[in-house]
Design a protein around this nucleic acid. Structure first.
Lengths: 251, 251
DNA sequence: CGGGGGTTTGACGAACGTCAATCGGGGTGG
DNA sequence: CCACCCCGATTGACGTTCGTCAAACCCCCG
């Protein structure tokens, strides 16, 4: 199901740190051959982070940007009394910490939810600032806009959808994002996080999260086991959850 | 309570279209005298929009940027079955539609909630792109980051706060934002929108919104009447709602 | 064999939504 | 000037969704 050989190659530290990033940006705004080559040529430093590691600390300076090579992270905030809200999921191919401002402070904590491999993305910023790499810079801007779109979707989920709708909507988003970078098949994708994480993302209790997933299974809309989710009826699910692909730029 | 004479001046079409914007940016990242002067010198086209007018249509191209001179707007999405989610409030001094990308499509609708006066903000974009106006460009970037911060706050409100906490938190945000541009006093500010709007923003029903406001009044935390809100105990309210001023950039 | 984290279940209660009616003020036409 | 109306705020009664608590269960691992 997962492309294990590719994955193994990447994890062993092959030269293709930018591979997933390119897949993602290309889908958003086709890069030039030169830009793709420039990104692939880079051999950035890699880091491994264990689950629970904090990549950025809320209100602390953003150390350096990363591209996620494998594993999942999230942005989160924790209230004084311990309540946690997960604001977004960060998946392989995502670039993080590429803020435009001068000495940026992180608006949220960023935490590894699984073991993950990341590459220092300073080379991406450098490449994008070269004048010949126009489309790369544009693609990064569009990626930022797409991220804003995801945050807006999240607000809608939390603000006016039921537990069932929220869950379906989030699963559809994760599936779409993973498919772009080749980590999901037509209907399935890995889900390496606990129900507690989903609950904290969707504003539900763990118990209700569990029951909601059960209901989706009972209704034969999804399958889930062993860390994989299968969307049995993506179209019906999308209709039900009011899920629509939003475009960020058009000509 | 409201600075009526200033307001009247602005509404009559005095030359100070950028006045409120400058107040806001200055508070975020002090501009140079030259930058302030450049912004104040501009005499952009003005437009008046009645309540209900749609400044931008979701998924349609963003026509041109605006600075809000008076009145409130919001960004919103409407689901297929009519449920509405308000994603953010746009207040006087806010710039909207200043997207960086090429031919941007609006990620949400933007709707006037009161009669409003806006100025064409093309001159702001132009001024920011001149190389000598570094700090202006930086300030705009920081304003964008602040907006992201507000969106993150909104997710937290919806995801893990009670109706009472959400409401208090939103009122504190609105107060802080209006105070920066001089439209709020130490404890009071105008609230020109219906409870239905607040409800659609906070993910509550109108009925529950009403009861929540009543409770805040009963608890002597706020006063509200005639379109004005007074925060009776801002500190206690902030403590209760876990409201914190988040900084976007640091030395 | 024991332990711990994650999932699942049941019973119960609280927060919030829905429905429907009333109230109150400002505007409008007769 | 007054009757009417409409929109927004308010109230009450009731239903549903979702949270909480507590216990069991399952599986992997040491």
């Amino acid at each position: 199901m997962a492309p294990t050989s590719d994955l193994a190659t990447r994890l062993r530290g092959g030269p293709k740190a930018a591979e997933l990033l390119i897949k993602k940006l290309d889908a958003l705004h086709r890069l030039s051959d030169a830009e793709r080559a420039a990104l692939l040529a880079a051999a950035p430093t890699r880091e491994r982070h264990e689950a629970g590691a904090e990549l950025y600390v809320e209100q602390a300076p953003v150390s350096k940007p990363y591209v996620i090579l494998s594993g999942w992270a999230c942005r989160q905030r924790v209230l004084a009394d311990g309540r946690r809200q997960i604001l977004s999921f960060l998946l392989p191919g995502d670039a993080v910490g590429l803020c435009a401002r001068r000495s940026p402070l992180a608006l949220t904590a960023t935490v590894a939810m699984t073991r993950m491999d990341v590459a220092d993305a300073t080379f991406v910023k450098a490449a994008a600032s070269r004048t010949q790499n126009t489309r790369l810079a544009e693609a990064l801007t569009m990626a930022a806009a797409e991220e804003e779109g995801q945050l807006l979707d999240h607000v809608v989920r939390l603000g006016c959808q039921t537990a069932l709708e929220r869950t379906a909507h989030l699963l559809l988003e994760l599936h779409a994002r993973l498919k772009v970078v080749g980590l999901a098949t037509e209907r399935s994708f890995p889900m390496p996080v606990t129900q507690e994480v989903l609950a904290d993302s969707l504003g539900l209790s763990v118990v209700h999260m569990n029951r909601t997933l059960q209901q989706l299974r009972r209704d034969r809309l999804i399958l889930s086991k062993d860390g994989y989710v299968t969307l049995l009826e993506p179209l019906r699910l999308a209709e039900f959850a009011d899920f629509r692909r939003t475009r960020v730029s058009g000509k």
